[in-house]
Design a protein around this nucleic acid. Sequence first.
DNA 1: CATGAATGAGAGTTCATTCAT
DNA 2: GATGAATGAACTCTCATTCAT
Lengths: 192, 192, 192, 192
Amino acid sequence: MSDKAERKKKLIRDTAREVFIRKGFKDVTMKDIAQTAGISRGGLYLYYSSTEELLLDVLRIESAESDDTFETAISRRAAAADILLLFLNEQKKELLNQQDALSVATYEYAFSTGPGESGFLRKRFQSAVRIIEHLIRAGIQNDEFYSSDPHAAATNIMFVIEGLKISAQTIGITEKEVDREIRYLMDGLARF
Amino acid sequence: MSDKAERKKKLIRDTAREVFIRKGFKDVTMKDIAQTAGISRGGLYLYYSSTEELLLDVLRIESAESDDTFETAISRRAAAADILLLFLNEQKKELLNQQDALSVATYEYAFSTGPGESGFLRKRFQSAVRIIEHLIRAGIQNDEFYSSDPHAAATNIMFVIEGLKISAQTIGITEKEVDREIRYLMDGLARF
Amino acid sequence: MSDKAERKKKLIRDTAREVFIRKGFKDVTMKDIAQTAGISRGGLYLYYSSTEELLLDVLRIESAESDDTFETAISRRAAAADILLLFLNEQKKELLNQQDALSVATYEYAFSTGPGESGFLRKRFQSAVRIIEHLIRAGIQNDEFYSSDPHAAATNIMFVIEGLKISAQTIGITEKEVDREIRYLMDGLARF
Amino acid sequence: MSDKAERKKKLIRDTAREVFIRKGFKDVTMKDIAQTAGISRGGLYLYYSSTEELLLDVLRIESAESDDTFETAISRRAAAADILLLFLNEQKKELLNQQDALSVATYEYAFSTGPGESGFLRKRFQSAVRIIEHLIRAGIQNDEFYSSDPHAAATNIMFVIEGLKISAQTIGITEKEVDREIRYLMDGLARF
DNA sequence: CATGAATGAGAGTTCATTCAT
DNA sequence: GATGAATGAACTCTCATTCAT
């Protein structure tokens, strides 16, 4: 029966993901999710007791999956510049594709808990910094990159990405603008 | 009597500002503001008919005031690097001081209208880019700065600032981290 | 000053009349009337203290004016059938012209006071019956009409008119339908 | 469980019916009905989402039931004059009995939607006309009635009934007056 | 007289959450 | 487990009515 329950939970989670993408976090109600999932309100409470719990579960699964893509690229030992570009283009795709964006929901949730409370976000950020820093150092050894402070460079890249993400959701942003920014970042490292 | 009304409106606006800072945008109700301002709900509606209208008015006043500070600095014809540093430190102060932050409310509002809908945000962003670009060009002429593409550099700085701002509200950020980032940006321009 | 006050009262009354025609009785608020008349809410209360008071005043003036038209026709000693037809066509014009209809407001007001409470309506009805009966009797003497019970005939005509009026406002009614009904009434009297 | 829901809906409908009879349409609020039915406001919304929806449902049931009474009379093949008299007396009973009158609510609803918008009223009217016309034609064949234009006669009868109905609610009307009117209508047909 | 600011009551409506079935 | 009925709290918004100016 635990199997059946697991499948039900997944159904609910997938539904919730879709609703969060469509409506962010604050506007999503338990009723929304129950209706969209086609189950009863009472039934939903058997599995999740708040939209917060739901979003956290959605994000947990999400990050587990997204890490995969990236790590295989690294393990294939491609050139550092290529992997970094791959990473940046992955981010670009995500931030331009509003259909597939949990970012608004994530932001809204983070706002409602207050800065620093959503530890997993900081972890996610730091882990990305570490990977980028690692790539930069590798690139330096290969003479692909130059940087006097790889950590600062990596952090800077991540802040730019965060800036692009939030800008995409607030002021709007075009593909061209993202491309230009990516080139600027790469040039900054490549400089001779 | 229009004078009295204007003062009342200001009272409401100031109250709303405080509430928006404390609770963001989505969680703020007209009742909240009325209660905090110590007036009746019906009375509030005489001046503003929605939280949206209130936030927009708060932001309008805000930006009018903040522009001033900056422009006086420029008009005093200080060194470009100094002005840029002044600007960045102004941003730093704002993003570290959560007490005085309308950013969450602004983000939440922007989310609720959809990307690009809040035209004033884009305008604000672009106007900042233009000023920074102007400073960079001035700095280049003075041999303070070097940049092969001042516009790209200015845009990059703004994305970093946006990234710092959102990070301050989500993952949390320390003064040290901001300082390091500011130094990284300045070094990027100074590099010859 | 009583003159100026009288003119103001008339302005308010005329405005109210227009509003009552447009919105009936129940939906009209003191605010509506004040706004439409372009005066302050407080000012309105100096002259009228409720929509009921206003409607009653509007109707009082109305009936005083409408009686005139009809009585001149009678005093000109036209043929009974012609006068009756004139009367019926007057009614027809009114009930087809929704722009100029206080009937909905009157009905709604009567409903809110309960049957028989609006004595003036009954008086108005009975006075119309009396006039019609008088005309029928005159017509009988001229060999224009025939009726074994002129009072019953007159009452019947008034009920038909009331039926047409309410039908015009509920199920809707065409000019052709009204004409047919008028002809039916006239034929009933003229027979043979 | 749909059975239980049906019973609850009926309870609400019956309560609403009573409230509509007592207060008409415009003055009835969802709160009124919830309180009278002894349920919570939220609970009421599970079944009906506006007073309009409620009234329409009440009227729908009402007309379904009232049709029955009449049709059985016709199917028993009584004399046309008797059936017509039965019908008129049915109307009489209804319009004199204010306790059991949805007419005010119906009128107020019709006013609020505008003439012709409440299609079911016109249908109801026309169907009554058709039945009366049918009866008159049957009566003519039996030498009970005479009429040169049965359709016009039937329409006339319905307008009289409408006139009596609205008069009962506005100017008030006595049983004697209704009886006299009924006699007048019957005499009009019997006249040979 | 006249204004219009101010209050407070009240209606509509939506949900989170619980609970009997 | 699962349903969905039910409650009650909250929020939005609109006016009648009063009152200081």
